[in-house]
Amino acid sequence: MISINGESISILLFFVGVHGLIARRNIIKSIMSISIMQVAIILYFISANTAPGSVPPIGDVAQTLHVADPLPQALMITDIVIGIGVTAASLTMFIHLYHRFGSTNWQKVMKKRNHHD
């Protein structure tokens, strides 16, 4: 029996993102799917290593018994920054791509690209 917790939800979300990448021809939706995958990864890191009842490692935690592992949280701050950078870069590139090829469809863009060659 799979329980509903952060870990299983995040794996589900990850594959929702993968499905979006495979099944959607729209470039914006591809970028959105990548963002969904990144959110899933962040959720996975944060939730998979936390024991129930533990306290986030913020502020004075000297008195608390169970402190959540701070390393995944630190890693995920880096990943959030990278994710924003990647999404911003791909959206900017998409604007240029749209100006050049006039379509949001991967297939049509690919055909026009090969026509240019």
Partner: peptide, 8 residues
């Protein structure tokens, strides 16, 4: 011309 597609 085709750079943006390859890069993306």
């Amino acid at each position: 011309n085709v750079a943006i597609y390859d890069g993306m």
